[in-house]
Amino acid sequence: MAVDGCLLITETVLYFVVFFTGLISAVTVGISRVSFSGDCLLFAEVKWCNSTAFYFTELGSNGVCGFSVGLEIIACFYALLFGLYHVSIFFQWAKERRELLLPAIIINVLCLVLLFIDSCILSIGFKRFCASLTSGASLGSKVTDCATVPGDLDWNSGATCGTAQDKKTHGTYAGGNFFGFLTTAQGASWFGVLFWLIILVSCIVRRIRDKPALDPNSDKAPIANVTI
């Protein structure tokens, strides 16, 4: 029972951890959209006219950012629910229902796969936007890396260059600390994937250890409460 107790504690702590990583990722992606009038920067592309002016030739799909925010929120509140369920077991407010382990494993696998896809989307989409922003032929020393984008960069300078056919119309962009927000979103998302993997492994180990207790032909009675 000591091993089961340690695994359950590990899962409980990590459920609360992934709640916060998911919330951080969702909030930072959302804030980056607010700074850009609701537009998504993931997979967006820009074209520079000169060393100070550029315009957007492609805007990121709002569905991509919406998927990321929605998925992270759903996953983090599912984690919060299970974390509170585990806490209720520790304080003996509820008995542990071992038959929930298998459904939990299935849901955790689904969360892990979807969040892995989301993390890849965040990383690849942001990398593509940064590559476009820093690869202009006329950049000079204005922008050499996404991390060094000046805080006073004029994100609306495209009105003075390019053709109407090439430009993607958008609202007024404030820019803000887009690099910090999206870097935080990526980091939180990838840490979340790692922690979900650990949770999944812990659940599988507990399920394997519980097989004799859940077997109706076994002489081992199911244990309702966890003793550490």
Results as ranks from 00 to 15, higher is better:
residue 97 R to I: 04
residue 167 K to P: 05
residue 35 S to T: 00
residue 166 D to Q: 14
residue 207 R to D: 06
residue 112 L to V: 00
residue 176 G to H: 03
residue 57 T to C: 10
residue 215 D to I: 08
residue 101 L to F: 11
residue 221 A to H: 07
residue 25 S to Q: 09
residue 226 V to S: 02
residue 177 N to K: 05
residue 91 F to D: 00
residue 5 G to T: 11
residue 177 N to G: 03
residue 112 L to R: 00
residue 77 F to W: 02
residue 24 I to Y: 02
residue 129 F to H: 05
residue 46 V to P: 06
residue 221 A to T: 07
residue 90 F to Q: 00
residue 223 I to E: 06
residue 164 A to R: 12
residue 176 G to M: 05
residue 222 P to C: 11
residue 207 R to N: 12
residue 15 Y to Q: 07
residue 199 I to G: 00
residue 206 R to G: 00
residue 101 L to I: 13
residue 154 D to P: 05
residue 24 I to L: 07
residue 139 L to I: 09
residue 202 S to I: 07
residue 56 F to S: 06
residue 118 D to H: 12
residue 62 N to I: 15
residue 207 R to M: 14
residue 33 R to M: 15
residue 223 I to W: 02
residue 38 G to S: 10
residue 145 D to T: 12
residue 61 S to H: 07
residue 117 I to G: 11
residue 9 I to A: 15
residue 128 R to N: 14
residue 44 A to I: 13
residue 94 A to H: 09
residue 73 I to M: 08
residue 3 V to P: 10
residue 122 L to W: 12
residue 104 A to E: 04
residue 34 V to R: 13
residue 1 M to L: 08
residue 137 A to T: 14
residue 117 I to D: 04
residue 155 W to V: 02
residue 79 A to S: 03
residue 165 Q to K: 12
residue 16 F to H: 09
residue 15 Y to C: 08
residue 70 G to I: 05
residue 127 K to Q: 15
residue 107 I to G: 00
residue 215 D to V: 09
residue 188 A to S: 11
residue 67 F to V: 06
residue 195 F to T: 03
residue 199 I to L: 02
residue 171 G to T: 00
residue 141 S to E: 15
residue 83 G to N: 03
residue 201 V to D: 00
residue 131 A to W: 13
residue 18 V to T: 14
residue 137 A to M: 14
residue 180 G to H: 05
residue 204 I to R: 10
residue 102 L to N: 04
residue 117 I to F: 14
residue 135 S to E: 12
residue 131 A to E: 14
residue 118 D to P: 08
residue 114 L to P: 01
residue 80 L to T: 01
residue 173 Y to Q: 10
residue 140 G to T: 03
residue 146 C to I: 03
residue 38 G to C: 12
residue 176 G to K: 04
residue 180 G to V: 03
residue 86 H to F: 07
